[in-house]
Design a protein around this nucleic acid. Structure first.
Lengths: 101, 101
DNA sequence: ACCGTTGTTCGACAGTCGTCGAACAAGCTC
DNA sequence: GAGCTTGTTCGACGACTGTCGAACAACGGT
């Protein structure tokens, strides 16, 4: 299993923004914002698992998440420190924004 | 001429992020970041004017810019104060980010 | 009144994106 | 090993997006 996790500085800002510009992915990011590791499947999203897998892939390849494989599960967490270092304020701004109505 | 400029709070965060997640529009925003008014046509973008018009429309309808009509020209400026109030840190994070290589 | 300038709108087109079911892979448990 | 669970991958499909040329609209200057 190749876990493609790019260096954040190699990811264009537009890719980071595009990754955040989706309701499903934003919900994932909000959930991960507690700082802990979450198993992909435990985040309730109301979509097919293929779609779920797709969104986690987008987040990972945009440098937003770090994934640890353990058994059949994947533990995902937000790369908050790195993000705050490279884009100070971005994550906070997005997270404190009013949730989707 | 109907100038559709929504209240920022009525625009979903994802729409704001999507508007910023494009190289051309990001370049426009960076140019407008000096706080002044710019005439649409004076910003060098290297694209057809139809496309240019499209991008300015996206920015306007995402609540990112304010447009003033004067003669045949449109004066555009960034809605920075409102943006900073609703999404503190977002604009700064995007603007200080390394420009697209 | 004509012409040039500035922008918008209207198809059209290619490309990307979100979504899904189905098939597959890998691990755990009995 | 059989079966279940957890995710990924593979088309496929419809919707949206960025791009353009052409046509149009509105204004300014001569």
């Amino acid at each position: 299993m190749e876990l493609h996790e790019p260096e954040l500085r190699d990811v264009p800002v537009t890719a980071v923004l595009a990754a955040l510009a989706d309701d499903v992915r934003l919900k994932i990011v909000r959930t991960l914002a507690d700082g802990g590791e979450h198993v992909c499947g435990t985040i309730e999203l109301g979509i097919a698992k293929a779609t779920r897998s797709h969104h986690f892939k987008v987040l990972r390849e945009a440098g937003l998440t770090r994934t640890r494989v353990a058994g059949t599960s994947r533990y995902v967490r937000l790369r908050r420190e790195e993000l705050d270092r490279l884009y100070p304020g971005l994550l906070d701004a997005v997270l404190t924004a009013p949730a989707r109505s």
